[in-house]
Amino acid sequence: MFILYSQALSIIQIRYHKLPCPGRLGVSSFKKDRGLWLDKLPDGRCRVSEFGFQSDSRIIDADQLAALLKRIIKREFPRSYKLRLEIQSED
């Protein structure tokens, strides 16, 4: 599924909160060369793994997610118009 860059932050937050507990949400560029993965952990925290311009992985509390996503989206997708959204659930 594709989402617009201008709506990315709100859509990502909504989709993340609707994920089942061991779930994974991926956001990448159209070419799939830059992106990030959000893993919802059972203890209520989130693992954020970004790849592309900067490769990093960190575990944060869910209330810090919005501020971190805003910075990552600006850094990883500076000229993107459409972003690819992927949802994986561990059944």
Rank of each mutant, 00 (worst) to 15 (best):
V27T: 07
P20T: 14
D91A: 13
I73F: 02
I72C: 01
Y81R: 15
S57C: 06
D61R: 13
S55Q: 10
K32I: 06
I59R: 04
Y5G: 08
A62L: 11
C46M: 03
P22N: 14
I72P: 02
D91F: 08
I60D: 10
Q64M: 12
L38D: 03
Q7H: 08
P78E: 11
G44T: 06
P20S: 15
S29M: 00
Y81L: 15
L9V: 02
Y5L: 00
S10R: 11
Q7M: 03
I73T: 00
D63I: 09
L38T: 08
I3V: 03
E50I: 01
R24M: 12
E50L: 02
Q54T: 01
F51Y: 03
D33Y: 06
A66K: 11
I60T: 06
S80D: 13
M1A: 10
K82L: 15
A66I: 08
K40E: 05
G52Y: 06
S6P: 08
R84K: 15
D39F: 04
L65C: 05
Q88E: 14
L25C: 09
L85R: 01
R71W: 06
L19Q: 04
I11F: 07
E76K: 02
L36G: 07
A66S: 14
E50W: 02
D91E: 13
G26S: 11
I72F: 04
R15D: 12
Q88F: 10
F53P: 05
G52R: 00
S10L: 08
Q13S: 13
I12D: 01
S6K: 13
S55F: 01
F2K: 05
S89I: 12
S80W: 09
L65D: 06
S6I: 09
E50R: 08
F53W: 07
D61L: 07
S49L: 04
D56T: 08
K18E: 15
I3F: 02
S89D: 12
L38G: 05
R71F: 07
S28I: 05
W37Y: 02
G26T: 03
I59F: 03
S29F: 10
I3Q: 01
I11T: 12
L65W: 00
I60S: 02
G44S: 10
K31N: 15
K70L: 14
F53A: 03
K31M: 13
D61W: 08
W37I: 09
F53N: 07
S29A: 03
K40G: 00
L41M: 07
F53Y: 02
C46A: 04
R15N: 14
R75N: 10
Q13R: 12
H17M: 15
E86V: 11
M1Q: 07
S80H: 09
A67E: 15
Q54I: 09
R71G: 13
R15S: 14
L25R: 07
D33R: 02
R15K: 15
